[in-house]
Design a protein around this nucleic acid. Sequence first.
DNA 1: GGATCTATCTATAAATC
DNA 2: TGATTTATAGATAGATC
Lengths: 186, 186
Amino acid sequence: MARKKVKLAYITDDSARKATFKKRKKGLMKKVSELSTLCDVNACAIIYSPYDSQPEVWPSPQGVQSVLARFNSMPSMDQSKKMFNQDTYLRERIGKVQEQLKNQKKENRKKEIERVMFQSLTGKSLQGLMHMDLKDLDRTIDQHLEQIQSRVKSITEEALKNQSQEQGASVAADHKPDHVIKRLTI
Amino acid sequence: MARKKVKLAYITDDSARKATFKKRKKGLMKKVSELSTLCDVNACAIIYSPYDSQPEVWPSPQGVQSVLARFNSMPSMDQSKKMFNQDTYLRERIGKVQEQLKNQKKENRKKEIERVMFQSLTGKSLQGLMHMDLKDLDRTIDQHLEQIQSRVKSITEEALKNQSQEQGASVAADHKPDHVIKRLTI
DNA sequence: GGATCTATCTATAAATC
DNA sequence: TGATTTATAGATAGATC
């Protein structure tokens, strides 16, 4: 540009590089501004520098965002854009996680209902029981006692069968199934 | 700029505007490129035009994305950026939802364990029971029968008390608590 | 280190093909 | 309409303070 033609390569001299950077950055921003004014086009420039913590942008941060929004909303510039553009990815991901959360909550409600039911039947929750009609309680307890009886019976039979198959092994004796059955079947 | 000094305003003549746009766009991109090379800075430019469906970008779409990612990851340029930058927002949000999901799953595991326990005691799940030691079953059933007995007893007493307080109301009679107590207390 | 100057290089407006 | 030429405005490298 002046006094000498520049060689297009990294300027190793620190102060010279900084001086050039400042001059050219200013010129560049002016050019963007001019192009935008003369032709009324949407444009932006972002320049990071080792000299400022904030990047230099044109037009304004808001204006840049506006251009970026448009850039990001492009249907598909190419696949690499898609991969890099984490906004879309994050939106999809959040949707999936929320769906999972919804399902988990639904399942929790179901489990909670079951839990309260079973607790009501096994003596941990009196509050629930107090709301239950005593007639229903009677019938429900009957049903479950029958289930317990038949289950214990089948387990016991299974254990006795195994015992006889093992020819006198004393394992089943320790289980005292008779005690249970006796009490339940009276 | 040559032959004449340009007035910095929108060029109304269509062909002149387009010609200027093409020339200046090219020059601008060259400037960005030069700045980037000379000073080794991260920079990008995006120019939309009415003449192309795709925006002109420098360096490449990928390079632009790289700069944009950096731009978007800025701690906080200002509040308007923060508002516009949904990436950070989405990241925070996804973190929160995942935390919720984690808690829900933990709760589900807990409920599932409770459910299996109670099911084992009320006869719906034989599989679980088969893995349970019969001695444990014996003891557990004893415990819960006692609980049921005492619970039904207290409920019955409560009902009888209410009945006597209501002076001969026949509501409690329909509940048949005696039937339950008789069978359980033998 | 930054601001200013100025010689000269570069970008480009207008003309021409 | 686009490519090429050319005259000149604008940008800027290096010097100076």
